[in-house]
Design a binder for these strands. Structure first.
Lengths: 241, 241
DNA sequence: CGCGCTCTTGACTAGGGTCAAGTGCAGTGG
DNA sequence: CCACTGCACTTGACCCTAGTCAAGAGCGCG
């Protein structure tokens, strides 16, 4: 039995409080926890009969690669997030997923998913909500890349990660641990690593945020949110009144 | 009763063939068909208790607006597509949807959706597949905007639309009707309308494609696909062997 | 010790944004 | 019939953001 302080429970708890039966089913849906080393691929683009996982510890990212070798990171996964859930029904996975740190995951038992539809529909609805929320983040990511400049994108990206880390109890409103290299962040926000470096310097010199030694520190989160037009709505963190 | 040549049936037919019971359920899930004039909003960002629709005729687009007024179009919907399905479970819609032409839609009866889970699970799975496929397109869209230059984005965008139009029987491999203005396409691919115009001229002068008078014509689709690294895989059109 | 990786900075370049002007309709109203 | 308006599209000139190329610093590792 896993403690209820587990990231996945914290995350789903932002939507609704799960009853003991639903919590038990969520456990039943998962296979044994396994460890994957940093750099290993969990899912690769084009893979057939791919699986979905729940990430319990560590960071992963979903990305697509172009023929010329360029890589666009679509999404960063942190503890409590699903991996590959979105494309479970597609015949070939449309993206790859790689472990960015050593991670701990559990495979989702998709056969029991249909059983869970009958027995604990509210749990399934919560899972669908979580999937929708992840989609909303991809959409916001698209807007970011399509319409904002490098600085706004970068700040927005780090603000969003911070809000997510705070939600699962791994960060505060001013700081969180972030094991991403600059080139990873650059591939996520769609600029070159070199330019990202210049942007980070600018943010630092403007006393807005620090990103050093694997730690992000917000020096003025309000001004950052203002600057980047950041809006927490799409993250849908707030329980219904 | 609606003919099986309806766009939604054609679209879902790319995944599986629906039985008569499932087809009937799909009809039951929909409310009466209604007409909406071009320019009207079907869903607006922040809206609560928003609905989902099936688009039967005409074009719509989903977009987000920034504070400075800039607009990023996330997705174009053509007949057979769902509108607002993705964010149905979110408390506030994360995006707006507007009719680009006069359209015909039917509202999805979400109450019956849960009933359908029990009675026709295969239909629900097909709907979830369609939603996943739409997600895959948003993801590909993100990659496009993040990593490709203006010409590749534009060509890719028009190729994708062409493939979708062909799927629902509204286009051939060389041409389709496209009621989008240049500024709409520009907002979708994340460049200015002025620059899009230059790109279209370039594509025309290179004998690659024409976009005039509401019609897209591919002059050399293979070279276009080559040029833009276009890959049909993510559209998942092919029935399992 | 050399190798590889991440990070950093500078100099130069180019893709695409901005500003401005003009064309060619379709619709409206005199 | 013709002015007037508004919108979509077109083109040119200029500029700025971000990419490219190049070089070097710091650090962990075999």
């Amino acid at each position: 039995m896993v403690a209820r302080t587990d990231a996945i429970f914290r995350k789903l708890g932002a939507y609704t409080t799960l009853g003991p039966q639903e919590a038990a089913m969520l456990e039943t849906l998962q296979g044994a926890r396994t460890f994957v080393a940093a750099g290993k691929e969990l899912i690769y683009e084009g893979q057939q009969q791919h699986a979905a996982y729940i990430l319990h510890d560590g960071w992963t990212c979903a990305y697509k690669r172009l023929r010329d070798g360029a890589r666009q990171i679509v999404e960063i996964e942190i503890p409590g997030d699903f991996i590959g859930l979105r494309s479970l029904l597609l015949r070939n996975s449309d993206q790859s997923v790689v472990a960015l740190t050593n991670v701990e995951v559990s495979k989702i038992n998709t056969d029991r998913l249909w059983e869970a539809f009958r027995l604990t529909p509210r749990l399934i609805m919560t899972l669908l909500w979580a999937a929708s929320r992840d989609e909303a983040m991809v959409t916001e990511h698209l807007v970011c890349v399509g319409k904002r400049d490098a600085m706004a994108r970068t700040a927005h990206f780090l603000l969003e990660l911070g809000a997510r880390m705070e939600l699962i109890g791994l960060g505060s409103s001013t700081t969180y641990r972030c094991p991403l290299s600059q080139s990873i962040v650059a591939d996520a926000v769609g600029i070159t690593a070199i330019h990202l470096n210049r942007v980070l310097r600018h943010l630092r010199e403007s006393d807005l945020l620090l990103f050093r030694d694997g730690v992000v520190t917000f020096l003025d989160r309000d001004r950052l949110a203002q600057l980047t037009d950041f809006d927490f709505t799409y993250m849908d963190h707030y329980k219904p009144g």
